[in-house]
Write a protein that binds this DNA or RNA. Sequence first.
RNA 1: GCCGGAGUAGCUCAGCUGGUAGAGCACCUGAUUUGUAAUCAGGCGGCCGUCGGUUCGAGUCCGACCUCCGGCUCCA
Length: 630
Amino acid sequence: MKVVLPDNSELELPAGASGLDAARAIGPKLAEQAVLVRVDGRVQDLRLPLADGDTIQLLTMRDREDPDALAVLRHSSAHLLAEAVTRLYPDVKLAIGPPIENGFYYDFDFVEPIREEDLDKIQAEVDRELAEGREWTRQEISRDEAREMFADDPYKLELVDTAEGDISLYTQGDFTDLCRGPHLQDSKPIKALKLTGVAGAYWRGDSNNPQLTRIYGTAFYSREDLEAHLEKLELARARDHRRLGPQLDLFHMSEYSPGSALWTAKGMAIYNALEDLRRRENARRGYSEVKTPLMWDVELWKRSGHWEKYGENLFRIEHGESTYGLKPMNCPGHMLLFNTQLRSYRDLPIRYAEAAVLHRDEPTGSLQGLTRARQFSQDDAHVFCTEDQIQQEIDGMFDYVDFLYDAFGVRELAHAELATRPDNKLGTDEQWDHTEGALRRALERIGLRYRVAEGEGAFYGPKIDFFMDDALGRPWQMGTIQLDGQQPERLGCTYMGSDNREHTPYVVHRALFGSLERFIGILLEHYGGDLPFWLAPVQVRVLPVGEAHLEAARDLAGRLGAFRVDIGEPTETIGKRIRAAELDKIPFTVVYGDRESEQSLAVRERGGEQSELSLAELLARLTPLLPSEV
RNA sequence: GCCGGAGUAGCUCAGCUGGUAGAGCACCUGAUUUGUAAUCAGGCGGCCGUCGGUUCGAGUCCGACCUCCGGCUCCA
């Protein structure tokens, strides 16, 4: 048989030859260094047979940054971890141990819980294995044999019973694990393996199942890569908004109100910049700003359907005979507002916007600074429209998203998820084809990366969620656009159609920033605190060289009144105040002393670049950076 | 909510086996009048997360709770 190599040359091999055979046929060095074979783009264990006509690419330990090559290295590393743990804790039950984004984990069911300090012992055992060296062999067995073999391993047994395809085993030393593979030939390519932490994790990700102990680790093809990775993590931590926020005095947290930020004036400058933009654009795009109560009798939540599903997350206030709930969302309020008038089809679409304070009683363990808060505001809106208007409304929202992502320079951070028709859908496939297709086209039009979550839409319509990653690569849901065909009915929203009959309007629910708090958190991390000029809390700082220049500095600050300007009083050396301005991440610093005048200002940009500009030139430089120009 | 880790000055952290709390930065005062990332000297500053227990004595040991961090679950 023949296989095709990356340079398009053909390689003649005996029938049934494996990836490793192919590597041997090319050269002994390659065979020694090979870790994985990619067949027609899919990765495959080196030991598995190739088929005639396959296009193959052999990956070696030199492909140290290739995601697939890293994954196989880490998968094998997970097995080394499992071997070590099994030796140290013979009674442990093994669950699963896959490679993940930046490393790997293995889930164990320990008889005695283990602690972080036990990791050292386990790490030493893994290091010993690496020093000794391990080779992996693969073996395929029948399902029955597997059941017998893992009779004492409840988790493995469950995997055997639910696995698709053949059952395979990988053995290294005296340790054998049920595993689909692929794996390395031997442990030589693992040049760096570090266990990074322990955590609880539910078996099969279900909180009704027992909680297992997950040990995390990471591994690389070189020491330097591990060090680079750890350094990158350290840098990412420095960008964490929970660190930057208090450090830059933008917001603080208090244990007296977990999950709710205390915003400073500087933080509010950012918050208000978002709000100003939101208001301006909403007005421009035909939204009406409304305001509805923060607190509602829980009867409303029962009627809207939220009580049953989200009652747990509702903050409640007892009041006489009634119980009130702090609103976790604006929808029902907007619907009640809609109901205050008889509506005609001629009134539609009606677009209500409100960025009210929302409260959700999130589990303590899930709170995370601004990105997962108990109190936050969404740039929320509900568009009441007829079926015919849905398309244009959704298109308008995508234009809006497009605009926002450019304005904030976060487009490359974002990706979307299109949730499509579920099994229990309402309506015909044709209708779904139509709405899903419209969303898909809209996504492609604005060029956003997206993934399709098949069957995860609500039964009344598909939805789009927008996500962004934080500094540590964790994805957060930001905006959402979803079609709601349920609540308007529950809350009795109607309009008179041209046919002189009552109809229930469609409601398109949307938040584009998502939560303003979360958005600011992501922005801070994205920019590492170096916010664009128009968002910077202090845009210009004037530094008088000495007392003698204070008056002139104040005067200059006044001339720059269109911007957020402050003065660095001459209580310290100029060098120290410049350093402070850098640490405060202020975009422009103007030093003013004997040498300066309106004709010649010493302007320093964040990062250190200096220039000599007249006041007029400086104004000309800064004005285009104002939000009105965004 | 669950598993693991942590909570000491405004911030970053030190405080060994229990003997009564310390540094740097910040802040304040004084001197210096400063030219593009840290001038010098002095001073102020602590319910050692909270509550309870053990002990002659607890920042240190034990328990409960709260909060934060890493995960898991959840996330309208």
